[in-house]
Design a protein around this nucleic acid. Structure first.
Lengths: 237, 237
DNA sequence: TCATATAATTCATATATAAGACTTAGATGA
DNA sequence: TCATCTAAGTCTTATATATGAATTATATGA
């Protein structure tokens, strides 16, 4: 393989592999071709393939298992419950969140919602409202918004606790990263009734936008959280 | 270099380099010995040294500059203001935080404070109270707590905007990472007066513990933030 | 059924070469 | 004489490849 432009070889290969990944060339269940196979396909050495894959592993898009192969990172039940869930007990341990769906309907998106999802203003969205319990206590009221066009019939399905697994399995939409914005708010009437709160209790409002393999915003999720026994945790490096 | 136990060579080298780093063997201003020099010192190949350093770079403990060398990551004015600062404008851009010191005194630590800092209960702490402005508005009231024993005379100094730089330059304490816990609260009298608030405005309370090279907790910092024009942001991968 | 061999994978290490960045000697000119 | 530019040399990290080891799953046979 010749070196083009000024980008190092491994970076070019990384982009080619990533592009192949996005195009759905390999199933999310089977391993990728082995490093040696990819090496001969791209006509570079195994070490170069390895370095390319290193980057994708660092981005959490792939993971490796010595002796078995390299796989696409999926949101499966076990890890998905924790990977994108930053609420923990005050001692740092993480509770297992449970979900209770309250409703699931379609409606026209508001301006700021459509902007966040990068769909035309006024497009129809699917709204899921659900209550989440931690250690048995109702702690979070969660509003989930996705494009109806992108997730047809989602509102007619049985929604599992881990939605990202459903997106991946049934819609071929793979969530790779998310951005969260956090504010302090006071609860509105809906939150007060579902979480059974005093109106003066301050809440954490988490606004999350989740992105897919193409780095397109796919889901807007607004969570209202009571933070008595639980705290939002974040590591800085 | 012989391989001991089952740990790969590069991992052993990484730990040795890290230990040397902690012991203060190299100045924080000069580059480390070159990869080839380290290679001959440890009797391994340059590639193995490189892989060891890769890990330390990934941990943000070192950084590299092609052609110049490998350096210890310091908290200098430019980056330090942003690196450990997660508040941004709602559009995602980051304001430059300013600081106004309100007081700096010593007192006996409370139980939870000493626990967080891993010092004996009742040890004397230095408390810095300061107001931080973003875009000219008073937004954060910050209480900073460190061990007096660890930072002698800190209360008699002129405190800069970026404390971590001071810790590093004057006390040889290098902050490498931090953990933040976030809750929603209502302001107490002190906060109300300094931030000029209505008592019913909910606040973000950020409790940060900062760790040094030895992974010892060094500083406890509790920030009370108004989140009207600003939000706490966090990326999930 | 269990141990063992075998074939597949990724992982670890060493070597060689490329590319970037400072240093310094020397030329140039005012 | 002094300041300034230039280019070569030598330092640095970055990239690419080759070889063998470690790990895992599977097939094989007693």
């Amino acid at each position: 393989m010749q070196k083009l432009f000024n980008a190092p070889l491994y970076a070019q290969i990384r982009e080619e592999i990533f592009a192949a990944l996005r195009s759905g060339r390999w199933s999310a269940n089977d391993p990728l071709p082995s490093e040696t196979k990819l090496a001969s396909e791209f006509s570079v050495s195994q070490g170069t393939i390895r370095k390319a894959i290193d980057d994708l592993v660092a981005q959490n898009i792939l993971y490796r298992h010595q002796g078995r192969g390299t796989f696409i990172r999926r949101h499966d039940e076990q890890q998905s419950l924790f990977r994108f869930f930053n609420l923990s007990r005050t001692d740092g341990t993480k509770p297992v969140p449970e979900s209770l769906n309250i409703h699931c309907k379609t409606r026209k998106g508001l301006k700021h919602e459509c902007l966040a999802l990068q769909v035309p203003t006024g497009d129809r969205l699917i709204e899921v409202l659900r209550l989440r319990r931690l250690d048995g206590q109702p702690v979070i009221l969660e509003t989930i918004l996705v494009s109806q066009q992108r997730f047809p019939e989602l509102n007619k399905r049985d929604l599992p606790n881990t939605l990202y697994e459903l997106y991946s399995d049934d819609y071929n939409v793979h969530i790779t990263r998310a951005e969260e914005q956090i504010q302090a708010t006071l609860p509105d009437a809906t939150v007060i009734s579902h979480l059974n709160l005093e109106p003066t209790i301050p809440l954490l409002e988490i606004r999350r936008i989740a992105f897919d393999l193409h780095d397109q915003p796919v889901e807007l999720r607004i969570s209202q959280c009571v933070t008595g026994s639980f705290v939002y945790t974040c590591s800085l490096n």
